[in-house]
Lab assay of single mutants.
Amino acid sequence: NQASVVANQLIPINTALTLVMMRSEVVTPVGIPAKDIPRLVSMQVNRAVPLGTTLMPDMVKGYA
């Protein structure tokens, strides 16, 4: 199973992502692939993302 990107903490709306905010985990449904973590750094979330939430492409500005 492919690992997805999961929030390692509460990420407030419009926050630029950093490595410490994200972890990889095998979850259902599948979200953004963990291999894309380096690409996500500095991108902003367009909503508040609670701890443990799988990041989906529509949550990150400029990803999709």
Rank of each mutant, 00 (worst) to 15 (best):
N1L: 15
N1S: 15
N1V: 11
N1C: 04
N1M: 12
N1E: 15
Q2Y: 12
Q2V: 13
Q2F: 13
Q2S: 10
Q2M: 14
Q2E: 09
Q2W: 08
Q2D: 08
A3C: 04
A3S: 12
A3F: 12
A3K: 09
A3N: 11
A3M: 15
A3T: 06
S4F: 02
S4E: 01
S4N: 00
S4V: 02
V5F: 02
V5W: 01
V5N: 01
V5P: 01
V5C: 03
V5R: 01
V5I: 10
V6Q: 03
V6C: 03
A7Y: 02
A7G: 03
A7P: 00
A7R: 00
A7Q: 00
A7E: 00
A7S: 11
A7H: 01
N8M: 09
N8S: 14
N8Q: 11
N8D: 11
N8G: 14
N8Y: 03
N8L: 04
Q9T: 14
Q9Y: 11
Q9G: 07
Q9F: 13
Q9A: 08
L10T: 09
L10N: 12
L10P: 13
L10F: 13
L10W: 14
L10S: 14
L10G: 10
L10M: 13
I11P: 02
I11H: 01
I11R: 00
I11E: 00
I11C: 03
I11W: 02
I11V: 10
P12D: 12
P12Q: 06
P12M: 11
P12F: 05
P12W: 05
P12Y: 10
P12L: 09
P12N: 09
I13D: 13
I13R: 10
I13T: 11
I13Q: 15
I13V: 13
N14Q: 13
N14W: 14
N14D: 09
N14K: 09
N14A: 05
T15P: 00
T15D: 04
T15K: 05
T15F: 06
T15L: 09
T15G: 07
A16I: 11
A16G: 11
A16N: 09
A16H: 07
A16W: 12
A16T: 06
A16M: 12
A16D: 06
A16P: 14
L17P: 02
L17H: 00
L17I: 13
L17R: 00
L17K: 00
L17Q: 00
L17T: 00
L17F: 02
T18R: 10
T18A: 11
T18W: 03
L19H: 07
L19I: 07
L19T: 06
L19V: 12
L19Y: 08
V20C: 04
V20M: 15
V20N: 08
V20K: 15
V20A: 13
V20Y: 13
M21K: 03
M21C: 03
M21I: 03
M21A: 05
M22S: 01
M22L: 15
M22F: 10
M22D: 01
M22I: 13
M22K: 00
M22H: 01
M22V: 11
M22N: 01
M22G: 01
R23T: 06
R23H: 06
R23E: 05
R23P: 02
R23N: 07
S24G: 12
S24R: 11
S24I: 14
S24V: 12
S24F: 14
S24W: 08
E25R: 06
E25H: 09
E25K: 15
E25A: 15
E25N: 05
E25Y: 05
E25W: 07
V26K: 09
V26G: 05
V26P: 10
V26W: 11
V26Y: 14
V26H: 12
V26R: 09
V27Y: 02
V27T: 15
V27P: 02
V27D: 02
V27C: 04
V27G: 03
T28A: 14
T28I: 08
T28Q: 13
T28V: 10
P29C: 04
P29T: 07
P29A: 05
V30A: 11
V30W: 07
V30K: 11
G31I: 02
G31S: 02
G31F: 01
G31V: 02
G31R: 00
G31N: 01
G31D: 01
I32N: 00
I32E: 00
I32M: 03
I32D: 01
I32T: 00
I32R: 01
I32K: 01
P33T: 11
P33M: 07
P33I: 08
P33E: 08
P33L: 13
P33F: 06
P33G: 05
P33R: 06
A34C: 05
A34L: 04
A34Q: 06
A34V: 13
A34N: 09
A34S: 12
A34P: 05
A34K: 06
A34F: 07
K35W: 15
K35G: 08
K35T: 12
K35H: 11
K35Q: 12
K35Y: 15
K35R: 09
K35L: 09
D36N: 06
D36F: 10
D36I: 05
D36Y: 07
D36M: 08
D36C: 03
D36A: 06
D36P: 00
D36G: 05
D36H: 14
D36Q: 10
I37T: 06
I37V: 07
I37W: 03
I37H: 03
I37K: 05
P38C: 04
P38T: 12
P38Y: 09
P38I: 06
P38V: 12
R39F: 06
R39E: 09
R39V: 07
R39W: 08
R39K: 14
L40T: 01
L40Y: 03
L40I: 11
L40F: 02
L40D: 00
L40N: 00
L40P: 01
V41S: 04
V41R: 04
V41I: 13
V41G: 02
V41Y: 07
V41W: 03
S42L: 13
S42T: 15
S42P: 02
S42W: 07
S42C: 03
S42Q: 11
S42E: 12
S42D: 10
M43N: 04
M43I: 04
M43P: 00
M43Y: 07
M43D: 04
M43R: 08
M43A: 06
M43C: 03
Q44I: 08
Q44L: 08
Q44T: 11
Q44W: 07
Q44H: 11
Q44N: 07
Q44V: 07
Q44C: 03
V45K: 00
V45L: 09
V45R: 00
V45W: 00
V45D: 00
V45S: 06
V45Y: 00
N46M: 11
N46Q: 11
N46R: 09
N46A: 08
N46L: 15
R47F: 06
R47G: 06
R47Q: 08
R47M: 15
R47H: 10
R47Y: 08
R47T: 14
A48C: 05
A48V: 13
A48M: 14
A48H: 12
A48F: 15
V49P: 02
V49I: 15
V49Q: 02
V49K: 00
V49G: 00
V49Y: 02
V49W: 02
P50V: 10
P50N: 15
P50D: 08
P50W: 09
L51D: 13
L51V: 15
L51I: 14
L51K: 11
L51T: 10
L51W: 14
L51Q: 14
L51C: 04
L51M: 10
L51Y: 13
L51N: 14
G52S: 07
G52P: 00
G52K: 04
G52V: 02
T53M: 09
T53P: 00
T53Q: 14
T53I: 08
T53Y: 10
T54S: 04
T54A: 06
T54P: 07
T54Q: 03
T54R: 04
T54G: 03
T54F: 02
T54Y: 02
L55K: 01
L55H: 01
L55M: 13
L55C: 02
L55E: 00
L55S: 01
L55F: 08
M56A: 09
M56H: 10
M56W: 06
M56S: 11
M56I: 09
M56Q: 12
M56Y: 11
M56T: 11
M56R: 10
P57Q: 15
P57F: 08
P57I: 06
P57R: 06
P57C: 04
P57V: 08
P57G: 09
P57N: 15
D58Q: 10
D58N: 11
D58P: 07
D58H: 12
D58E: 13
M59T: 07
M59Q: 05
M59W: 10
M59C: 04
M59V: 07
M59N: 08
V60S: 01
V60R: 00
K61P: 10
K61D: 07
K61S: 12
K61T: 14
K61A: 13
K61G: 08
G62A: 12
G62L: 09
G62N: 13
G62Q: 11
G62H: 08
Y63M: 06
Y63D: 04
Y63F: 12
A64E: 14
A64F: 07
A64H: 12
A64W: 06
A64M: 07
A64C: 04
A64D: 12
